[in-house]
Computed example of a mutant assay.
Amino acid sequence: MSTAPRPDDRGRDRDEEGRARNARPRDGLGRPLPYGTEGVERQPEGVTRTPEETVAQAQALLDAGRPFHAHEVFEDAWKSGPEEERDLWKALAQLAVGLTHSARGNITGGARLLLRGAGAIGAGTWGERPHGIDLDGLVVWARELARSLEGDGPTIDAAEHAPRLRGAGSA
């Protein structure tokens, strides 16, 4: 059975089960583009990855200035991972969405999401470096970026401000 999006009788993209599946192309920050425009490759939904694969793929997307797409990788991890790690992956997704909003020009919303993600990481009980992730470094990164955005700062470059999930020396 195909789950490729197709328009319904009202012109909305739906899968075979009738769930919304927007087939519009998107830019690197996840913004919809007009149909027929070439966008960036979208992340497949519902992929189960190991934590190592999740972190590596999300980092590559962050480095490429595609935090919206990194958020989708983290979202897959929280939906398919063990219950005790779901809040970790949700918090990381919030950081990616905060960076997305900041790069799109929604400075206030971006800063709020960065701080919310940092707060969730700080409140977690996953240990010091779950899956090699530098949680302390991410909290510092998120708070510093949010502080730099205060007062309608300029739109930022997502790749230039991408966090290092495994710390300053990570690749």
Rank of each mutant, 00 (worst) to 15 (best):
M1K: 10
S2P: 15
P5E: 06
R6Y: 07
P7K: 15
D8I: 09
D13T: 13
R14N: 09
R14P: 07
D15V: 09
E16S: 15
R19D: 14
R19Q: 12
R24K: 14
P25S: 01
R26W: 01
G28R: 01
G28C: 01
L29F: 12
R31D: 04
P32N: 10
L33N: 01
P34G: 05
Y35S: 08
G36W: 03
E38P: 05
E41P: 02
R42F: 01
Q43Y: 00
Q43H: 01
P44G: 03
G46V: 07
T48P: 00
R49S: 10
T50N: 09
P51L: 06
E52H: 11
E52K: 07
E53I: 00
V55F: 11
V55L: 12
A56W: 03
A56D: 15
Q57Y: 03
A58W: 12
A60I: 03
L61Y: 03
A64T: 04
R66F: 04
P67I: 08
P67W: 06
P67F: 03
F68E: 08
H69K: 00
H69S: 08
A70M: 08
A70P: 04
H71N: 02
H71P: 00
E72G: 06
E75K: 02
D76M: 03
G81A: 11
P82Q: 14
E83R: 13
E84A: 15
E84P: 12
R86E: 13
R86L: 08
L88C: 12
L88Y: 13
K90L: 07
Q94D: 15
Q94V: 09
Q94S: 08
L95S: 10
V97S: 13
T100A: 09
H101Q: 14
H101D: 11
A103C: 11
A103M: 09
R104M: 05
R104D: 01
R104C: 00
G105T: 11
N106G: 03
I107M: 05
T108H: 13
G109Y: 04
G109L: 02
G110R: 02
G110D: 04
R112N: 15
A118L: 04
I121W: 10
E128A: 13
R129T: 15
H131V: 01
I133H: 07
I133K: 08
D136F: 10
G137S: 04
G137M: 01
G137I: 05
V140F: 07
W141C: 08
R143I: 03
R143W: 02
E144L: 12
D152T: 06
G153A: 15
P154F: 04
H161A: 14
A162L: 07
P163D: 00
R164F: 00
A168C: 00
G169N: 12
